[in-house]
């Protein structure tokens, strides 16, 4: 099913490690940051991905559309290294992340933000703790700055004054927006978004969502 998937952007894509790109032989080329090559993934006898090839270039929004259960979430989880493919490779800056050590993978994950299908907020933590979890662990910025950043992320998705609430006190749409705020809190280079429309208010979408969908 995925075998024939082509880059959505329509540009000619070259990997950024391709020397010819830097020599100016491909002046109209686009910097390729993530490249999936021949990804195969099965669960038992059920093959979910049957040789996916996909290139994602810098600054582009790529949408993957497919019927329910066709492996969209699995593909995202493979990109971020949560699942290992049966075969094929995921190249990030030329490095195959399916073959690297766990410590290196953890460092690579800092460049990603991911919003899960069911939000996946930590239900024992408040909204503030959820959004600020990565900032408090991976950065050495002051608590005041962290709070400012959390406030900015939440206002970006149209949620203010919910910092002290627990996920159980939020509606499904609000949870999704908090998950989005958590994903952007670390200023990730890549944002992976599983089911972006679920829970989105169709009448007045928050600014952050609008930007995401029209980029």
């Amino acid at each position: 099913m995925w075998g024939g998937l082509q880059p959505v952007s329509g540009y000619r894509l070259y990997h950024h490690t391709d020397l010819r790109l830097f020599l100016g032989l491909y002046p109209f080329g686009v910097l390729v940051l993530i490249e999936l090559m021949g990804l195969v993934k099965s669960f038992g006898e059920l093959q979910v991905l049957g040789g996916v090839d996909l290139s994602i270039s810098e600054g582009k929004t790529v949408a993957i559309i497919g019927e329910s259960g066709c492996g969209k979430s699995v593909l995202l989880k493979i990109i971020i290294g949560l699942l290992k493919p049966d075969s094929g490779s995921v190249l990030l800056d030329g490095q195959d992340i399916t073959k690297i050590k766990y410590k290196e993978l953890v460092e690579i994950r800092k460049r990603f933000g991911m919003v899960f299908q069911g939000s996946a907020l930590f239900d024992s933590l408040t909204v503030d703790e959820n959004v600020g979890l990565g900032l408090r662990r991976h950065t050495r910025i002051s608590e005041e700055e962290i709070r400012k950043k959390i406030g900015w992320c939440l206002s970006h998705v149209g949620l203010e004054g919910v910092e002290d609430k627990y996920p159980a006190q939020l509606s499904g749409g609000m949870k999704k927006r908090v998950a989005f705020a958590r994903a952007i809190a670390m200023d990730p280079q890549f944002l992976l978004y599983d089911e972006p429309n679920t829970g989105l208010d169709p009448i007045t979408p928050p600014e952050g969502y609008t930007n995401l969908l029209i980029t």
Binding site: K77, I80, G81, L82, Y102, V106, E107, R109, K110, F112, G113, M114, F116, Q117, G118, A120, L121, F122, D123, L133, G134, R137, H138, A179, R182, M186
Partner: peptide, 14 residues
């Protein structure tokens, strides 16, 4: 089962 452990890993936590 609610993908919170996956979310934790995606935030570069072990």
């Amino acid at each position: 089962v609610t993908e919170q452990i996956d979310a934790l890993e995606s935030l570069a936590f072990n």
